[in-house]
Design a protein around this nucleic acid. Sequence first.
DNA 1: TCCTAAAGGACTGTTTTCAGTCCAAAGTGT
DNA 2: ACACTTTGGACTGAAAACAGTCCTTTAGGA
Lengths: 268, 268
Amino acid sequence: MVSFVTIDIHAATMKTAGATGAATCAEGDAVPDSPFGSSFSMLRPVRGGNAFEETIEHILQTIKLGIFAPSEKLPPERELAEQLGVSRATLRDALGELQSAGYLEVRRGRYGGTYVSTATVQRTPDDSPLDPAEVEDVLLFRAIIEPAAAVLAAKADLSAAARRHLQTCLSEVSASSANGYRPRDARFHIAIAELSGSASLVSAVAETRARLNDLLDRIPLLATNLDHANEQHADIADAILRGDAPAAERATVEHLEGTASLLRGFLA
Amino acid sequence: MVSFVTIDIHAATMKTAGATGAATCAEGDAVPDSPFGSSFSMLRPVRGGNAFEETIEHILQTIKLGIFAPSEKLPPERELAEQLGVSRATLRDALGELQSAGYLEVRRGRYGGTYVSTATVQRTPDDSPLDPAEVEDVLLFRAIIEPAAAVLAAKADLSAAARRHLQTCLSEVSASSANGYRPRDARFHIAIAELSGSASLVSAVAETRARLNDLLDRIPLLATNLDHANEQHADIADAILRGDAPAAERATVEHLEGTASLLRGFLA
DNA sequence: TCCTAAAGGACTGTTTTCAGTCCAAAGTGT
DNA sequence: ACACTTTGGACTGAAAACAGTCCTTTAGGA
């Protein structure tokens, strides 16, 4: 049962529940006595959409966050369906949509599978305006969790594999330019959270980064100084590998300020 | 269409997705080459269960977190269903379950509605053992976001309503003892996050607190020194209202250590 | 007293999602 | 060349979830 509605994958941003939840309050009649009281944002949607949409969004994020790199193979459908807690039929609908949108390529037969496209999908410029509240919320939350992750990573007793992983992510982001930069950048930041050893922190960083990506998609892709960003990445990685927590924190805060002022610039 | 399976509300803990996600990795065959690589925990369930279960869990949390206090009225079914993004039929199934579990009371007719029970539900001692990884994860993440919330709250330019709200929550938690303490305590901590002005932080604190509650349900309810906790609460509120960010942070960190060592004590 | 509005309660038909089964393609190894 | 295995592809019937409609209860006001 293939859906008739052709979903515009690019537009299917679908705010990761709770994000803009606070804004949903205003319901038309009378200001809710106080912004606090009983409910705040606990009366938010229990789920982000139907299984089909959620599955599309989820897989798309794993690609946009660089979790699955181009040419990498996704797990077999049966396996992936189970891991995502969704039926294979639903998963297949989602994969089909992503395939026809150009994000995935499918090969049949033994040793076949679903592969992430190497060709980057043409970015449709998203003209919807930036929501200032969402921008500030994302930047603020990010400024809390990412430096914390860096500090923890620096303090952690890192395994050889962990160190190698950080360096791999670093060199991959350095090596890529413009097209394909974003996912590698995201991957690097998530890698730091992984080193922190906190599963919740990893989730939080990944989710927040996804929201940030959606915001960045709304502004023209002007020459962010990639060289500068790469230097900062190197500083952060270096501090972490040295075990210098304060330096890691400082470098991270500094690095985040770049993105922050870039985005804030488009609010004024 | 009432479900035949009678759900044990108390046991329906249903880890808030991603929480213990990392643990889900181990699949039996061979160690995943490295704990990093491609997937980490992005291959987690897209949804926490079916709509019915998720709705139950969600409403239950709003009660356990003190968002809806005893004798308070929930929004009308039609409204609540829309806010939760679920059909009224599903919502009614969930409400029915919570009602027969003793959490809710329903009155029909005009000016009727669904009310939170004043009688506290008898706590079924949950014997399932504490998962050390989950404990450490919750405590660590909490130690990151709650002090940050306190700092932001202290730095914020608080409205009169905001100040009043914090004081109300503080006095309510101080006034309650043993039975009914937990939700008010949670409410107080969430209130601080609300003052921070960051919607994401509120969500994060609420969600983490829900996980913490589930852990606390697993250990015997021994005399946590409520007086001491209340003093600490007062210190935190005081520092925030004075606008003394460093003091607010210090007081929060100190306060969290109490719960942390209580829980860690049950791991050894 | 009776009407009305606001709430919960109950039913119906449709769409989505699911678990399970079987088919088709394409490598691997004998 | 052939069998085998791993993968995607397609179908079916059942269950869940939905939107929409109508009924019932109950308090307040004309």
